[in-house]
């Protein structure tokens, strides 16, 4: 079943997945390209939330209702299992975020900065006794 990319049904049926990819890549880009450690963590959170959106999107049934039992025997419920998984993931996510932020505070106390470039330059200086060569590889 390969529909044309211009088919409206196909676009609406896959729109959520495409937007999840765009958000996920924005998060990845923030994490990889920005040197500030706090911003890296924010990027990681965006990456993580977009994965939640993928899972929740897959569990949705059109015309369904939230998986809380109602009296109507014909009610259609959206899939509760992705919801359980993502609930766990959100809570574990905040635990890792808190740990990362605590590490950032410790890095700030030891190095006096939270910029990746400055930290790498300092470590290089500690190890080799000279600053990083200008325009060199960031390792």
């Amino acid at each position: 079943m390969q529909a044309s990319i211009l088919d409206l049904d196909y676009v609406l049926g896959h729109y959520n997945y495409w937007m999840f990819v765009i958000l996920m890549m924005t998060g990845l880009y923030i994490t990889v390209s920005r040197g500030n450690l706090i911003k890296k963590i924010v990027g990681l959170n965006i990456f993580q939330t977009s994965v939640f959106m993928l899972y929740i999107s897959m569990g949705k049934i059109i015309g369904g209702t939230a998986p809380i039992l109602v009296d109507n025997p014909d009610a259609v419920y959206s899939n509760p299992l992705p919801h359980v998984l993502i609930l766990t993931a959100i809570v574990v996510g905040i635990a890792t975020t808190a740990l990362a932020l605590a590490l950032v505070v410790r890095i700030r106390e030891t190095y006096g900065t939270v910029e990746e470039d400055d930290i790498l330059a300092m470590e290089h200086e500690m190890e080799f006794g000279s600053g990083l060569p200008q325009g060199g590889d960031r390792g």
């Binding site: 929740i56 999107s57 569990g59 949705k60 369904g64 939230a66 959206s78 992705p82 919801h83 993502i86």
Partner: peptide, 8 residues
Amino acid sequence: VTLDAVDV
């Protein structure tokens, strides 16, 4: 909420 995941 629109995707029926109220707990999430």
